[in-house]
């Protein structure tokens, strides 16, 4: 083999390594829960790999804490097993979110949706560590469209042991890992979307999507006529939004930097 070919191989390897090392870190969007075990944050559609670009969601949304907890408790899953021998079988239907997760998760979602704009989704990730060293991770995105709540679920109790993979999910909660053993079980007034409009791709698994027609307070979550004015209680005026933003900063729920960034975004819409 000539030196030229040797050099070409080395150059190829170096390009790969340098490219990997030089990838610029992306700025973290403001989040409402930023721990190792729970993440809730608003993400502009432009930063999501989805076909929702250009969509207009009915955000912000102002559901109460109790309503969010009702929504969360209404999401059901069941385990699925496909053994080598014998027929496939499913486990019992159970709530996706545990009781101990619902309160704090609901509070974070409530805060996020009060600030989300019509071009933003609320992404989330939950980690459930265990003594065995395996962490179950659930992640995805929420949004409200045409008066209906959507849950786009990329990972459902996926077992993760590699910190880099969990970190990647935290960066992009719609980053779907292979190998889920759970499937969503739609309940009353819930519909599964077989081919959601985004999140997957050529090199990625497609998430599943659950559409929730009504929750504990249908009259607030799901307007009867999508064409009409949304019945969702929205924080509509700029003044109100700025006031909410200021209150969140004063309560130290968001940082000064997040406050300035969000305020600037709101003012730019004038």
């Amino acid at each position: 083999m000539s030196m030229r070919w040797d050099r070409a191989l080395w150059l190829w390897l170096c390009l790969v390594l340098v490219g990997c090392a030089s990838a610029a870190p992306q700025a973290e969007p403001p989040c409402f829960s930023c721990g190792d075990q729970r993440l809730v944050r608003i993400v502009p559609l432009t930063k999501l790999r989805s076909n929702d670009q250009g969509s207009r969601f009915q955000h912000p949304v102002n559901l109460s804490q109790a309503e969010w907890e009702t929504v969360l408790r209404g999401v059901m899953v069941r385990s699925t097993h496909s053994p080598l021998l014998g027929p496939s079988y499913q486990g019992a239907t159970e709530s996706l979110f545990l009781d101990e997760e619902v309160h704090a998760f609901g509070a974070s979602l409530r805060q996020a949706f009060r600030q989300a704009t019509e071009q933003e989704q609320v992404v989330f990730a939950l980690a459930r560590p265990s003594e065995t060293g395996v962490t179950q991770v659930t992640s995805g995105a929420w949004f409200v469209e045409a008066g209906r709540m959507h849950l786009r679920l990329a990972n459902c109790r996926v077992a993760v042991t590699m910190p880099s993979i969990q970190r990647q999910i935290w960066i992009d909660p719609l980053f779907a890992q292979a190998g889920t053993f759970y499937e969503l079980v739609p309940g009353n007034h819930q519909t599964l979307v077989n081919q959601p409009s985004g999140g997957g791709g050529v090199f990625r698994l497609d998430p599943v999507e659950l559409v929730i027609d009504r929750s504990g307070r249908r009259e607030e979550v799901a307007p009867a006529a999508p064409e009409g004015p949304p019945s969702l209680p929205a924080v509509s005026s700029l003044e109100e939004r700025l006031a909410v933003l200021k209150r969140l900063r004063d309560q130290e729920l968001i940082t000064e930097e997040e406050y300035r960034l969000k305020k600037q975004q709101l003012l730019e819409r004038l």
Binding site: G19, C20, M162, S164, Q168, F203
Partner: peptide
């Protein structure tokens, strides 16, 4: 062993 290969964004 990247969780997501930078630039190409492939796992």
């Amino acid at each position: 062993a990247p969780a997501l290969l930078p630039l190409l964004e492939m796992p």
